[in-house]
Every structure is written in C-alpha cells, then in structure tokens.
C-alpha cells in the first residue's frame, strides 16, 4: 500500500513537472531568430549546398564537426586498448 502511494506520488510530481514545461513551451517560435534567418537566407549562396543541415554542420560549424570526429577517434582508440589488455598479451596477433 505504501509502495503504491510512493510510486503514485512520484508519478504525479513528474507529470506535473513535465506538463508544466510542455504547456509553457512555444514550439517552433523561438525568441531571437537573427542567426537562424541569416543562415537560412544566405547559406545556399555562401556554401553552395542545398541541404542546410550539412551546410551548418560542415561549414558554419566546422570546428564542432572536428571535435566530434576527434571524440569518435578517441573512443575507438580506447575500445582498442581495452580489448588488447583483455587478451593477456602473448596470443594477441596484430592482424
């Protein structure tokens, strides 16, 4: 009985929290749109790419993509090091 009460109360609090956020959000109309408008108006001319997402990711925000690639590289180097250690050394062939 007590468990049900606790679960119900926590669910109610969570529903109130997310409901309040969802009701106060105005979807699709942010307050300041200067930078978005600049990208949408001039992106095709400046980068020559029809896909605006790729234009932003690879051209306007190129350093972001550089960091993402570096993070992926470091993660895979870490996975490689982890499995190299698990093999015990002598019978791990470098193929």
């Amino acid at each position: 009985m007590k468990k049900v009460l606790v679960v119900g109360a926590s669910l109610l609090i969570m529903a109130a929290f997310f409901g309040m956020i969802a009701l106060n959000l105005t979807f699709g109309s942010p307050k300041t749109t200067d930078m978005d408008d600049y990208f949408l108006r001039n992106g095709q001319e400046l980068t020559g790419s029809n896909n605006e997402c790729t234009a932003v990711v690879f051209d306007f925000r190129g350093f972001d993509t550089l960091g993402e690639s570096t993070v992926l590289f470091c993660a895979i180097v870490g996975v490689g090091l982890m499995f190299r250690k698990m093999q015990g050394g002598e019978e791990y062939e470098d193929e």
Partner: peptide
C-alpha cells in the same frame, strides 16, 4: 558538382 569542400569533408568523415 556544387558546394565546395562540403562533399570532400563528407567523404572524409
């Protein structure tokens, strides 16, 4: 055949 270095970077990534 447009978009400058964006396709090259796409291929690299």
């Amino acid at each position: 055949n447009t978009a400058g270095i964006v396709p090259l970077m796409n291929f690299a990534v």
